[in-house]
Write a protein that binds this DNA or RNA. Structure first.
Lengths: 378, 378
DNA sequence: CCCTTTATCTTCGACATCGAAGGAAGTGGA
DNA sequence: TCCACTTCCTTCGATGTCGAAGATAAAGGG
């Protein structure tokens, strides 16, 4: 079952505030939305009538009458979201508050091209919906992350480096043909940033790094995802100063990714006679205090930190959140922090927090939910 | 005469659209504002009634009835704006559309402290108002740029490096005590960016560089000035790679400003046996094709460009506008362009324009007008 | 226990905005 | 010249939002 949400105008804002947990009573909605309490009451009544909200007991008093707690009806709908990687797709169903109902990972070769990949994705969505969601609960939106740049205007993949056959493919149109619903297509690092942002309430400017096999980054500016031309937030192909010279997959010399990514560390360890296959192996070595691995991770962190100094001075974020599999190696974040604090302007670092990412493995799915909710409630 | 603008709600939006030139008829206002044509008519009537708008002849037909052209009444009010430098203050009066009525420069030592400087400024404003503006035309807002970081929350100057006595001084409060009006205080580079942005209609993401005695930069993100913590946009204290080692005024080694600013070039030329005093002298040497000077400007441009690669990849601007006195030396922008295009991701440079700034010497005043108008029409 | 205080929520009249319909003032083609 | 068409602008009834006032429900203190 598919169905556009029957909300309009102020209803959307109110529903969003409840969905994101920003408010859970009529009075709270009035405070957060800026609407008059009377208008809120009116709209909430309609939303309850429509089966989207339900009243559920009462909240805790703030000194006066207890609020009647509002929450999303479990029958209000679900969102289907995915994050396409090179060899796997992580996908799941979320309720309208963005909380996961079910998440799973399926093997999926992105090199097989857009039609095959997206159909596999949609089949998996349909299977999950049939298995996990009563037919009476409608699907409200579909979203996916892709490991390449997405033109924000057309929702097409543009000039992807590791997605043969995808260039200029109208991903959103293809999905909309199957689901006549709001559709979201976004770069995977951007989705992760959007997901991470929900874990940092009150922080309006974030940089979110993903240091894994590769290096990805997304930026939240004034509370909103900064898209630029589809690859905003990229830091992996910044030139770093080095004695040697390495050619990156992008064709340039001495990209950050060619020195500080998990793949680069694996290669460097191999040169040093230590054979490892996955980034997690590198983390294990560091946690076992193998000196070469620790030293290499430190160097990687310092290099990342040096690139960050430029961006921290320029962008003045409140938070730099570091995620990705390599972030489990503690020296990484420590050395990033050291480089940034040593070199940035005091004003830029005064209230800056450089911290491990909080949103976990499902960050991209949560981000897709967050952005998709905006689209659904537009 | 001082007076807050008697506008509320939709009137402000409409007045802003006319002031910025985005619309010049009721129909155009309806298109741009999203309001219904009937509501527009109603509010416009009130604005005419209030003496803020006037009807002035008719515009050109778009295939049907000719629109009745609307424009700001010249008696609607003026804005007083300034840009404080180290030794001079540039100040002027603008009409509500942000167009300068009069601009002048007065000597003014910022080291004399905030009270003396701001009182001098206000005296100059009062003199200009008395000389140039009929008493019936009210002053609607006051704004100034300062050569240091400004906390956007409190409008205080924070940790300025070249403004002794100003640290934590409540500039806005001081001005508001004299003018009970909307007051704007902002970093000078940010003001310049805001002013330059008006010269690039349709471009939502800009980086605006000012390369003069120092190096300043401001960023416009999604059409709005990015403030961060008050010094967002700073690029002057980024570390550049170099064989030698120079200590910057900020205390760090090898800052961009210590290599690529006008002051740095003057020092380098002195070392090479060429005695010059001002950045404009450097420009003259380059335009006279003096090899040392040209080569040095090229190197400076390349260094600036290398720093920009990081930011262009990350931020994906539509435009990098280069202003400041040193930008009159043509090799500067050429070498910036070369460095950025060589090294950035194709997607980031595909539609990127790296061009001379368009707004001219009054950019900061125009920017102050633009931001102040928003405050006045809030 | 009763009263005051605080907060939540609803009722109701005033006002703002909307969309539909139509009048006004042009353009362009037969 | 006449007429269809487009665009601009206004009129008018329907709807949405607001703020004030009051009803409801709890906390806290004598």
């Amino acid at each position: 079952m598919k169905q556009r949400l029957p909300v309009q105008g102020a209803q959307g804002d109110l529903l969003r505030l409840v969905a994101t947990g920003a408010a859970e009573s009529r009075a709270g909605l009035a405070r957060m939305s800026g609407l008059a309490a009377s208008s809120v009451s009116l709209r909430v009544e309609e939303l309850i009538e429509a089966g989207l909200l339900v009243e559920e007991g009462s909240g805790t008093s703030r000194g006066g009458r207890r609020p009647r707690r509002l929450c999303l009806s479990p029958t209000a709908g679900v969102l289907a979201v995915a994050d396409l990687g090179a060899h796997h797709a992580r996908l799941g169903l979320l309720d309208l508050s963005g909380a996961p109902l079910v998440v799973e990972e399926v093997p999926c070769e992105i090199t097989e091209g857009p039609e095959a990949t997206l159909d596999l994705l949609a089949d998996a969505f349909d299977r999950l919906l049939a298995e996990r969601v009563p037919p009476s609960v409608p699907l409200r939106g579909v979203g996916t992350g892709v490991p390449g740049p997405v033109d924000p205007a057309t929702l097409r993949v543009v000039t992807p480096s590791r997605m043969p056959g995808w260039n200029d493919f109208p991903v959103a149109d293809h999905l909309r043909a199957r689901y006549d619903l709001p559709v979201l297509v976004e770069n995977d690092a951007n989705l992760m940033a959007a997901g991470e942002a929900r874990s940092w309430p009150g922080r309006e400017n974030l940089m979110v790094l993903k240091v894994g096999t590769g290096i990805g980054c997304g930026a939240i500016v004034d509370g909103r995802l900064h898209r630029g031309r589809g690859a905003a937030g990229d830091i992996s192909h910044v030139r770093v100063s080095s004695d040697s010279s390495v050619i990156c997959a992008c064709g340039h010399h001495d990209c950050l990714e060619a020195y500080a990514s998990g793949a680069a560390l694996i290669a460097a360890l191999a040169d040093a006679g230590v054979a490892v296959r996955h980034t997690s192996d590198v983390v294990d070595l560091v946690n076992d205090a193998v000196p070469e691995a620790t030293s290499m991770v430190r160097t990687a962190g310092r290099r990342i930190g040096e690139v960050l100094t430029v961006l921290v001075n320029f962008f003045n974020p409140d938070v730099v959140a570091v995620g990705g599999s390599l972030s489990a190696a503690e020296p990484l974040i420590t050395s990033i922090r050291a480089a940034v604090y040593e070199r940035c302007l005091p004003l830029a670092t005064r209230d800056l927090e450089i911290a491990p990412a909080r949103a976990g493995r499902d960050a991209a799915l949560l981000g897709a939910g967050s952005l998709l909710l905006d689209a659904v409630l537009a």
